[in-house]
Amino acid sequence: MEQRTIAEIGVCSLIIIICALILWQAAKLPPGSFEPLGSAPVPQATAGIVIGCCLIVMVKAIIKIRRHHSLAHHVRDELIGRSPWNAIYILGGTLAYVALLQLGKLSFGVLTFAFLLLLIMTLNRFRRHSLLPATITAALFGFGIEFLFTRVFVVDLPV
């Protein structure tokens, strides 16, 4: 069976941090003036239960690691295997794309065209025969969406 213990521990720690942040914020809220509950208790109770559940999952995971295999075994099992590069390209490319949109120096159509072209080519490892379909796809969707939104629907796109 596929092991997920490392992921479980990591993700649960992340969730606990989120909950702690919310608890910290909720502590600052004033008590309710319209009804007995007020703004704070519902989020506080929810965050508390989530932390509890996360601890359960983490303890179970740690027990599993202790009982069956060494930590190294788990690391090998979970983290090594599939190549993560494509996911990194997509995520990194998207982050750069959105950041450039936010800066607002280039028009939506041009940016989207460049983003699609570069990303599709990267995912196809810059193979020659994918250049034409990639350019067509990028132009069609990049400039097509820009035209549709700004001309037909007359709304703003992130410029």
Binding site: K105, L106, S107, V110, F113, A114, L117, L131, T135
Partner: peptide
């Protein structure tokens, strides 16, 4: 050739955006 076209299109767009 296409790549060069892309570059010039980007440059043109930047020109419009800044002026």
């Amino acid at each position: 050739l296409r790549f060069r076209y892309l570059l010039s299109a980007m440059a043109a767009a930047m020109l419009i955006a800044t002026t």
